[in-house]
């Protein structure tokens, strides 16, 4: 419990730091002033640029970052438990690219056939199609990699390679029909970007993402049982198929919606649960909530870095998370090699 408290404090500190630092520096006073004005606690109106920078740009961005970080981290932890393998991540097995493919198809083709769709409808449709794409590819990866009661890791990685390649090719094919602006947008989006965050996106994604995080937080006991094996989990009273279906749906929802609004942000789902397990062991009752908190903090800080490193310009956040995550992944592989040599 104290660990959860500590992680919560880290998250709050990260959010406050991210709120004050940036191309336009703010003080903590400014932030509290704007928040209390917006919530109606004070009538004293803040400066308009303060309102614009903090309330309309920075705060939605921080909230979206925290939600997406939490979603990717808990989805990673849940997938690892489901596949019984600590090296699994939604990007690796193709869930994210499934979502990405569907979003690209939606964006490009709604442009081409010049559908008279209101932009708000496209924004609503995006998470839905991303969820469907993510769901289909999670199921595909699961079916392809399963041997007996265990997902075979080499099959899983290979099916991930195949699925990612196929999705990549289809995305490329779709972009062939797109105009220059769409291509530039896509490139930035595919590297991950929180820059487009606004209250509408928060409003659409919050119930979906928080709902699936809430569902996944309740799967700690089933995931513990599943880490013994599916037969063993059944013997101990788990309705295995029901639980698996629920987890896959929730993961596809969390990752799909995140991808729809922020693009593919890699390695969060791999690195965060790993760090948590190194700290406190394998019990999912702690791994899941701590992954949520650390994942949220990590993405808020990564987004801060993406804003300040080349300020006033911005780096795509996916570059930051991959720069931090890929070396960590390589370190894990080296460790794994050392262990299997003994």
């Amino acid at each position: 419990m104290s660990l959860i408290g500590a992680m919560l404090l880290i998250l709050i500190a990260a959010m406050m730091l991210s709120a004050v630092v940036g191309a336009y520096q703010l003080s903590l006073n400014d932030i509290f002033h704007v928040i209390s004005y917006q919530l109606g606690f004070t009538k004293d109106q803040p400066k308009p640029e303060l309102l614009a920078v903090f309330w309309n740009i920075r705060l939605p961005r921080i909230l979206l970052g925290a939600m997406v970080g939490a979603a990717l981290a808990i989805a990673g932890a849940a997938l690892q438990g489901l596949f019984r393998n600590p090296l699994v991540e939604s990007g690796l097995i193709g869930v994210s690219s499934g979502g990405a493919l569907m979003v690209v198809i939606l964006i490009v083709f709604s442009n081409i056939i010049s559908l008279e769709i209101a932009p708000i409808f496209i924004q609503l449709l995006q998470p839905l199609v991303a969820f469907i794409g993510g769901l289909l590819l999670t199921i595909a990866a699961y079916k392809l990699s399963k041997v007996g009661s265990k997902a075979d890791i080499s099959l899983l990685i290979l099916s991930g390679v195949a699925i990612n390649a196929l999705a990549g090719a289809l995305i490329g094919l779709t972009l062939y029909f797109a105009d220059d602006a769409a291509i530039r947008n896509f490139t930035f989006w595919s590297l991950g970007d929180l820059g487009g965050a606004n209250w509408l996106k928060i409003g659409i994604s919050a119930p979906l993402i928080l709902g699936s995080i809430g569902y996944l937080l309740n799967t700690a006991k089933p995931l513990n049982l599943l880490s013994l094996g599916e037969s063993e989990a059944f013997h101990m009273g788990l309705s295995v198929e029901k639980v698996k279906t629920g987890i896959i749906l929730a993961v596809a929802m969390a990752v799909g919606v995140s991808v729809a609004f922020t693009g593919i942000i890699g390695f969060v789902g791999l690195v965060i649960p790993h760090i948590i397990r190194l700290l406190i062991g394998a019990d999912h009752k702690l791994v899941l909530p701590l992954s949520v908190l650390l994942g949220a903090s990590f993405l808020v800080l990564a987004d801060l870095a993406s804003r300040v490193v080349v300020s006033p310009s911005e780096l795509p956040i996916g570059i930051i998370t991959s720069l931090a995550g890929a070396p960590f992944f390589i370190w894990l592989l080296i460790n794994f090699k050392k262990k299997s040599r003994v």
Binding site: G81, N224, S227, L228, M236, L238, G281, A282, D283
Partner: peptide, 17 residues
Amino acid sequence: HSTVSFPFSAKEIIMIG
């Protein structure tokens, strides 16, 4: 045979579920 893929302690395995 039982393979356990995560670093559980013996006590956690015994009390699991």
